[in-house]
Design a protein around this nucleic acid. Sequence first.
DNA 1: GTACATTTGTTCGTATGTATA
DNA 2: GTATACATACGAACAAATGTA
Lengths: 93, 93
Amino acid sequence: MALRGYPFRMPDEIDPQAVEWPYRQIADVLAAEIRAGRWAPGGQLDSEKILCARFGVARKTLRRAYESLRQEGLIFTVPHRGTFVSDPLPAKK
Amino acid sequence: MALRGYPFRMPDEIDPQAVEWPYRQIADVLAAEIRAGRWAPGGQLDSEKILCARFGVARKTLRRAYESLRQEGLIFTVPHRGTFVSDPLPAKK
DNA sequence: GTACATTTGTTCGTATGTATA
DNA sequence: GTATACATACGAACAAATGTA
């Protein structure tokens, strides 16, 4: 990482200089983990706060990633409770 | 300045009629200020918006000037955060 | 019931990224 | 080169709902 004079290193797989937007990279990482079975269907995902720390992004960016995953049907959010893995998972396109 | 009957003075040192491209003039002005120590190494430069107003140019032009300064190693940009003076500054060629 | 922590919901201001005319 | 619009992102703050001690 650390491209073009960017002095910091991101905590996780996110590259702010990449072609893909950070929120997309995050969504892809989480989608892969969900598909891999890191959480069981219905299981609760990490909170926005935790994931912000993990990926080193602002909460708005993390929420944008979650929003994408919701639109893709992989997760659902219960207000003030948390975000969970869809059950069943949609077929992989 | 005050070209072609334009009764006012340009906001800053840019002369659209000069041989040098406006983005080059801007880059030179900023480079001189950086070398002169107007900002400390690591200090945040003015935003694109501010500098557009100062030099009286479109954002596209200002960004091109910043791009040149980045290539010269004088500054670096953190996406959505701002543009900063390199630390340390490269030796003047 | 009260107090506290946790999580998501919402809004504000500012800055850069990208695209189109 | 200019002008405009919109998307993405950071940072911060506060609100609302939930769960627990």
